[in-house]
Design a protein around this nucleic acid. Structure first.
Length: 430
RNA sequence: GUGGGUAUAGUUCAGUGGCAGAACGCCAGACUGUGGCUCUGGAUGUCGUGGGUUCGACCCCCACUACCCACCCCA
């Protein structure tokens, strides 16, 4: 098919039966989030570019190198166009909506979840696409409503553990860290820079660059030779101020109390500027290099940096593509079979078949409709190929007698059934 | 942005400087209203795109593009 139009780089079509898995994931997500009292929010895919510059951070790779952004046409000749961007993540949009609609006026904490496409202009590889899907949730609100409480952090993490268990995902690991706050992080960063000054010369070239641009990322380095050096660098944990220390300790205590296993990873850092205090990641082995299945953390200053009131919050984003991938590693997808294939037999039978299909479908029977031009042999062959459980023959004999030939395609057994008993015969249960 | 690999039928892949292949799938038939198994037949390809070498290129050379994997980064 040379010259034909194909899906653009980094995007893909999700086809049946894979979409069954996606729907399975999404309905489990909605069920689980519901009992934790999260409600769905839908924000635009298109946002003002500044939203991401001011939240995710202008120096991050996501904003500086990976954003799909362009200048919209100006409305008047004297004006400049507005810069728009496809959202690279969804937390900024949710917080923007929180501010725009003054949601702090609503009682209690705002608890939102979202499912939707995000866009980053990266080079695609396994588990990484330019259009990818995130499932996320945010808890946000005034401090007086309890938004800063460590119990919210623990609740969110416990919910995630429940979700992964519910989905049947085995072998996940929760990594936890505290990345500090506006008060103590600058002190830590300075200590880290000072320590790096002496050793960075013997580290990998990437670390030498990171030491300049984003020293925290040095902790993320995977080069074996650098590991002994990194182990000796100062740890954020030793620089947390009193309130951050107590907060982090309480989160751990609660997690232990509810029986969610976790491991402290002093080197866990997040890629977005807005994260504070609790930072976490769930990983899974079956994902290749992209082993982070979800990540998140607290963002206590984000609302203010977007011009809103103080509104501490915590949230996460699940990489839905990666989640589906791990699910397909373990369990195969089973497409749901149709209940019955209706085989009209001979001229004039389509209308009778259509009437029957209408009746059955109104009783929730899943019907595939054949065509009167097909030979019966072909109809039955098609019926079994597409996985229908029964074939219903609609020919002159049946229409005249009111007794319909119903064939069980699994057993080969064929019975004659009165029209009004067909739904029960096809779907004995329910 | 960097490195490596790949590109041939719907799919997974063989293949040779001289007629384009297999398996699976798809379509049709094996006497009239009975599928799965079997048998027979059939269709489908600008051999990724553009250039070059050659009497002749799917094959050799160059460029481009796309995809895959890894780095970077992140979900």
């Amino acid at each position: 098919m040379a010259g034909s139009i194909k899906a653009v780089r980094g995007t893909r079509d999700l086809l049946p039966p894979d979409t069954e898995t996606w729907n399975f994931v999404e309905s489990a997500v909605r069920d689980v989030f519901r009992v934790y009292n999260f409600q769905e929010i839908r924000t635009p895919i298109l946002e003002d570019l500044q939203l991401f510059q001011r939240s995710v951070g202008e120096e991050t790779d996501i904003v500086s190198k990976e954003m799909f952004a362009w200048e919209d046409r100006a409305r008047a000749q004297s004006e400049k166009g507005q810069w728009l961007a496809l959202r690279p993540e969804n937390t900024a949009g949710v917080v923007r909506a929180y501010i725009e609609h003054k949601l702090w006026e609503r009682p209690g904490l705002q608890r939102f979840y979202y499912i939707g496409p995000q866009f980053r202009r990266e080079r695609p590889q396994k588990g990484r696409y330019r259009q990818f899907y995130q499932i996320g949730a945010e808890v946000i609100g005034p401090s007086a409503a309890g938004s800063e409480s460590p119990s919210v952090d623990a609740e969110v993490l416990e919910m995630l553990a429940t979700l992964l268990d519910r989905l049947g995902i085995k072998g996940w690991a929760l990594k936890l860290n505290s990345v500090g706050c506006a008060n103590d992080r600058p002190i830590y960063l300075q200590a880290l820079r000072d320590a790096l000054k002496d050793v960075v010369g013997s580290m990998c070239v990437d670390c030498q660059r990171r030491a300049q641009t984003n020293p925290l990322r040095v902790l993320d380095c995977k080069v074996p030779e650098d590991q002994p050096i990194i182990e000796k660098l100062p740890r954020m944990n030793d620089y947390l101020d009193e309130s951050c220390r107590a907060h982090f300790a309480e989160v751990q205590k609660l997690l232990t109390g509810v029986g969610v296993p976790f491991e402290i990873d002093h080197r866990l850092v997040r890629g977005l500027d807005y994260y504070t205090r609790t930072a976490f990641e769930f990983t899974h082995g079956a994902l290749g290099a992209q082993n982070a299945i979800l990540g998140g953390g607290r963002y206590d200053g984000l609302s203010e940096s977007l011009g809103g009131p103080a509104a501490p919050g915590i949230g996460f984003a699940i990489g839905e593509d990666r989640l589906v991938m791990t699910l397909q590693e373990s369990a195969g997808v089973a497409a749901k079979p149709a209940d019955v294939y209706i085989a009209p037999l001979g001229a004039g039978m389509n209308v009778h078949a259509a009437q029957l299909a209408r009746e059955l479908r109104r009783k929730n029977v899943v019907v595939i409709l054949g065509d009167e031009s097909f030979k019966l042999k072909k109809s039955l062959e098609t019926a079994s190929k597409v996985g229908a459980r029964f074939a219903l023959i609609v020919g002159e004999n049946e229409v005249n007698s009111g007794q319909f030939a119903l064939k069980n395609l699994g057993t080969g057994e064929q019975v004659s059934v009165m029209r009004n008993e067909l739904p029960a015969a096809i779907r004995p249960i329910g």
